[in-house]
C-alpha cells in the first residue's frame, strides 16, 4: 500500500468564488481524514480572508469558458451576482458552507490559516484587515518551513 499523506500545505491564489472553494474543500477534507493542513492565501486569494470582502466573493462570468455564457452576456450588470447566487444555493444543498463559516470550521478543525506577506505588502494591508481566523502573515520562506515534510498543493 502507498504511504498515506500526513500533511498538506494548500495555496489559494484565485480571487473568485470558484477559485477559492477547491482549496477550502481540500483543507477541510484533509482534517477530516486526520491529515495536518495549512492554508496559505496569496494574491487575489487574499479576498477570502479579508474581513470586508469575504462575504461578497463572486463567481467570474467573464473570461470563464466553463460558465458557457457569451462574454457580452456575462458582462451585463448583475450577471455575476446572479450566477453567484445560483452557485451558493447549489452548494448549500450539498452542505458546502459559505466561505466565512467554512474557514471557521477549518480553523476549529486545527488547520493553520496564513496570509502571504508579499501580497499583503503589495495591497497595503495589515493584520487588522483580516478575519480573526487568520493565524499570521508569513513570508514565502516561513511558508516553506511550515510545509516541510508534507505535500504542497497550488489551487
Amino acid at each position: 500500500m502507498a504511504t498515506p499523506i500526513e500533511k498538506v500545505s494548500i495555496i489559494v491564489a484565485g480571487g473568485s468564488l470558484e477559485g477559492m472553494y477547491p482549496g477550502l474543500i481540500l483543507a477541510n477534507g484533509a482534517r477530516m481524514e486526520g491529515i495536518e493542513a495549512d492554508l496559505f492565501f496569496t494574491f487575489f486569494g487574499l479576498d477570502a480572508i479579508i474581513e470586508k470582502r469575504m462575504d461578497k466573493l463572486k463567481v467570474a462570468t467573464v473570461g470563464n469558458p466553463a460558465m458557457h455564457m457569451p462574454t457580452l452576456l456575462g458582462a451585463l450588470p448583475g450577471m455575476s451576482a446572479f450566477a453567484t447566487g445560483m452557485m451558493k444555493k447549489e452548494m448549500e444543498k450539498i452542505d458546502i458552507p459559505p466561505v466565512r463559516e467554512f474557514l471557521e470550521m477549518i480553523h476549529d478543525a486545527g488547520a493553520g490559516i496564513y496570509a502571504c506577506k508579499a501580497s499583503v505588502d503589495m495591497f497595503h494591508l495589515t493584520k487588522k484587515d483580516f478575519c480573526p481566523m487568520v493565524d499570521d502573515i508569513i513570508s514565502v520562506g516561513q511558508f516553506y518551513e511550515r510545509a516541510a515534510g508534507g505535500q504542497i498543493i497550488f489551487t
Binding site: 482534517r31 476549529d108 478543525a109 486545527g110
Partner: peptide, 9 residues
C-alpha cells in the same frame, strides 16, 4: 448534535 467542531476533533 450540540458538539462543536473543536470538541468533535
Amino acid at each position: 448534535s450540540g458538539v462543536d467542531t473543536k470538541e468533535l476533533y
